[in-house]
């Protein structure tokens, strides 16, 4: 199923995230990813919502009905810069240490914390790159992992 990315400009008011997520869940839409954060404009936040193609029109229309939703732009996948952040804690021991660090470094992941028997890596990239890195680390034993949700910007004006 092909994905669509919506960039949703909202008023930064209490409960706006609850309104958006409640609308999505009560209408039965499938959402692959949702992230939210401040913008350069005061009082405005931006949500990036990744949904499936078949739902996108209704998602847009239903979200547009929310009083606090100002503007929804569907990003053109061919002209979109998209990124996601990952923090991954993997277990290490004397035998695996070198291999883990080598694989992480080849994946462009940054080590942000290393202990006796674990290491934490940070990786920013496309969802596919993050998936790949997760698969690479899996054999060593992933202790904990968190992904930040996808964010995107259109690369033209």
């Amino acid at each position: 199923m092909s994905e669509r990315i919506l960039s949703v400009l909202v008023e930064d008011k209490p409960g706006v995230l609850a309104r958006v997520s409640s609308t999505i869940s009560r209408r039965g839409f499938n959402i692959n990813s949702l992230s939210v954060g401040p913008t350069n404009i005061e009082g405005r936040s931006k949500m990036t919502i990744v949904t499936e193609l078949d739902a996108v029109e209704q998602v847009k229309k239903q979200l547009n009905k929310l009083v606090n939703v100002i503007k929804i732009v569907e990003l053109d996948p061919n002209m979109t810069i998209e990124t996601e952040v990952l923090l991954l804690k993997v277990s290490i021991n004397k035998d695996s240490q070198t291999s883990v660090i080598e694989k992480a470094s080849l994946s462009n992941a940054t080590s942000v914390d290393v202990g006796q028997d674990f290491a934490i890596f940070e990786l920013t990239g496309s969802s596919k790159e993050l998936d790949k890195f997760e698969a690479l680390m899996k054999p060593f034993g992933i202790i904990e992992m968190v992904r930040g949700g996808r964010i995107a910007l259109q690369s033209n004006l």
């Binding site: 209490p14 409960g15 609850a18 309104r19 409640s22 009560r26 009905k65 929310l66 009083v67």
Partner: peptide, 12 residues
């Protein structure tokens, strides 16, 4: 929260 899905909009 309870009235969110039962109103067009609401305020606290």
């Amino acid at each position: 929260g309870l009235s969110m899905a039962a109103t067009k909009h609401n305020y606290l």
